[in-house]
Design a protein around this nucleic acid. Structure first.
Lengths: 223, 223
DNA sequence: ACTGGCCCTATTGTATACAATTTGCGGTCG
DNA sequence: CGACCGCAAATTGTATACAATAGGGCCAGT
């Protein structure tokens, strides 16, 4: 059984990542306490964590807002991810057991199934994608790296523009993963790092373009 | 004026970094509340932050302990720092203003003065060294990178084995900084990254050796 | 109408009381 | 003698009350 403070963290995080709040919205502790179904005390601990993870920001007067990201922020996040996940892939190439590589293959089959058809199942794709990357991070055996990546990976999710990805983007992701698996089987760390690098850099452009599109949509909607 | 929760954070952090507690020691919230001079509520927020920064760890039963680091942990920390500070140096080489480079030079003169003599002033060295690296991180203009580095840089400080550095180590650090400044003046990002890389990797070996020595000393003392 | 100051309200900050959990000790039974 | 159970003490977790502070609106004076 998890504590109220963990409950609060999970629920508020789900609330943010689920897109029920818009970037820039103000959130009061009381409102969040309602959402989480606990008192303000555990909510405060949860908001501190979420603030450290940059999903929430505080104004000068200590009020809480849903974080917002500029294009530069997205660029920064993906640049850091490229560097760090590239490193993770390199370490994973050394450490992945054959069983773990089989597991990766299985996850990616699932991912292929989700996107190799006329109507891709985005949320299945996102889940499989997340698990795939987590498995690699796990295999890197670097707890601080894992912690940092969790933080970086979560942030842009809030923008939830993944639904703007084209079917081609999704299929290319699946192929990148195939190549990553090949690099792991070949035990070639440099190959793994390189594939991970291009994978994420392309993801950045897809993502940034989608985010701009969404921003324009918002502008239009407001007019 | 800072809030009680910030006061608690600062005081507990100083308590840990000042080496008044040994790695592995248990700390109760009440004891920490005494140290910080506030009630347990703000202490809890402070400990959550310090836990996220890995200066404190929690047992399965939620009790709080001073973090301890294995040689693998030190290796991990310096590997990540090498990658991330290398990246910071690269970005800084693009972005540092001439005035900022002058500032770096001034800081490093101070550092030289602290170590270019028979009896080096270690705490002056550590201060100047910290400010030097912070200036570069700042110049990289990457808030997430800065946040991550703060976390990574602080951690090993608790081991406070810097006093085991030899005069030669310290002088070599000063020379590394000189070369870094040269790379910045030449606006050569690759050079800057390479110098930062070797600088930190050597620091790792110095540090790890010193830490092992300290560990052995502890063992001896316990016998 | 505009600006400045004041007050009221909304929001966050802190302490304390109490609840829940865990630890360690002591005693009892096999 | 050891293992196990249960109880008391220590520790962490949560709620609530109250304090401090910031924001927004209202009114007065120009």
């Amino acid at each position: 059984m998890s504590s109220a403070s963990d409950t609060a963290y999970d629920k508020i995080r789900a609330f943010l990542l689920g897109g029920e709040a818009d970037p820039g919205d103000q959130l009061t502790e009381e409102k969040l306490a309602d959402i989480a179904g606990v008192s303000r005390t555990p909510v405060r601990e949860a908001t501190r964590r979420l603030e450290a993870e940059m999903l929430l920001v505080r104004s000068a007067s200590k009020r809480i807002f849903v974080a917002d990201w500029s294009r530069d922020d997205i660029d920064e996040i993906f640049t850091l991810r490229q560097m760090l996940e590239g490193h993770a892939a390199e370490r994973a190439a050394h450490r992945l057991t054959p069983q773990a590589i089989d597991r990766l293959e299985k996850i990616n089959r699932e991912l292929h199934e989700a996107v190799d058809c006329d109507e891709p199942d985005i949320s299945r794709f996102l889940d499989a994608n997340r698990v795939f990357h987590e498995e690699i991070t796990e295999a890197a055996r670097s707890p601080r790296l894992a912690q940092i990546l969790t933080m970086l990976v979560d942030q842009p999710v809030v923008l939830r523009t993944a639904r703007s990805y084209t079917a081609d983007d999704l299929k290319q992701s699946a192929r990148d993963h195939d190549e990553l698996i090949a690099a792991f089987r070949a035990r070639d760390p440099e190959w793994a790092r390189a594939v991970m690098g291009s994978h994420l850099r392309r993801a950045f452009h897809t993502f940034a373009d989608a985010a701009e599109g969404a921003a324009n949509d918002d502008d239009l909607a407001r007019q």
